[in-house]
Design a protein around this nucleic acid. Structure first.
Lengths: 159, 159
DNA sequence: TATTGTTATACTCTATAACTATA
DNA sequence: TATAGTTATAGAGTATAACAATA
């Protein structure tokens, strides 16, 4: 076959688990985002805001982090002008966030950067069918993500 | 259909990009690892060591981080007895690492924790075919990951 | 001189605990 | 009292720059 003398366990017989694949893909996304000077948590937050999830507590639920983490991440985005933070008129304890035009532009750039890197990675596969299969295979997790969040909504995290 | 009045953009018409799916899955892996008191970077390092990649510079290349990050992560693993750090006898500038029995046990526990959480997430899909398709679809990235690292080996990062 | 790895330093993200403001 | 969010604080991971040891 091809050259595979210098990568003993990774090439060939050894099959990578989806756990390790997931861990590694996460880092690759992080690297792609660095091109936009965006961290993975910041990207996640911008994504939520673009989907209309604007309250700190909802965001914390969706991202599975505690509320102070949301405050910290949003602080950075507000400072850079990508997000606006306002008090809710009805219930002044609540805070709502909006993504600015610049934020939306950055988010789109970030989306593309990540997609491009993932495509480049998948593009190393032998043929087009494998590439398409990988991209599609990952996309299949979308509905599961949505459903998982729905389930969690009925048993939210405390604190 | 089903209830989807309270998740405006996420459910139904809106299709999640693989970029956002990847970002979210990474966080889910991180959460699963927390059960083993392991961070995502620590998990990545232990995985490499189990695959026989033991030099800081090789590890940094494989994980796409700078070398000081490897030092920091390994420090924690050494302190907890999961990794042993030694000087190379041939070239004393080099350092080599070995995963201990406890480290290997922890890694396996971590592997299972992540797999279990991913399976639970995929398990929210409508039928068994969709679940299997998601798991398999993610697994398809394994060979791409291996190939990507091979390519990078010939154009490694500086510093 | 070049290479390997570490140290020093700063920034971000995370969590827990305690706090403020509002209900 | 209870809830929403923030502040305070500490620990981990990351990067860059500077350093030590070895080649």
């Amino acid at each position: 076959m091809s050259i595979e003398r210098d990568h003993p366990k990774l090439g060939g017989e050894h099959r990578l688990s989806i756990a390790r694949i997931t861990a590694w893909l996460g880092r690759q996304a992080e690297l792609a985002l660095a091109e936009s000077d965006l961290s993975l948590p910041q990207y996640r937050v911008l994504s939520l805001l673009a989907d209309g999830i604007a309250l700190p507590s909802s965001m914390a639920d969706s991202l599975d982090v505690r509320r102070p983490s949301i405050t910290a991440v949003v602080d950075g985005l507000v400072a850079r002008g990508f997000v606006v933070r306002e008090h809710d008129a009805e219930d002044r304890r609540k805070v709502t966030h909006s993504i600015t035009k610049e934020g939306r532009r950055l988010l789109h750039a970030a989306d593309h950067a990540v997609e491009d890197r993932l495509s480049a990675i998948a593009g190393t596969l032998a043929d087009e069918d494998l590439v398409a299969g990988a991209i599609d295979g990952l996309a299949r997790w979308g509905p599961a993500l949505v459903e998982w969040r729905n389930l969690k909504r009925h048993q939210p995290v405390t604190s």
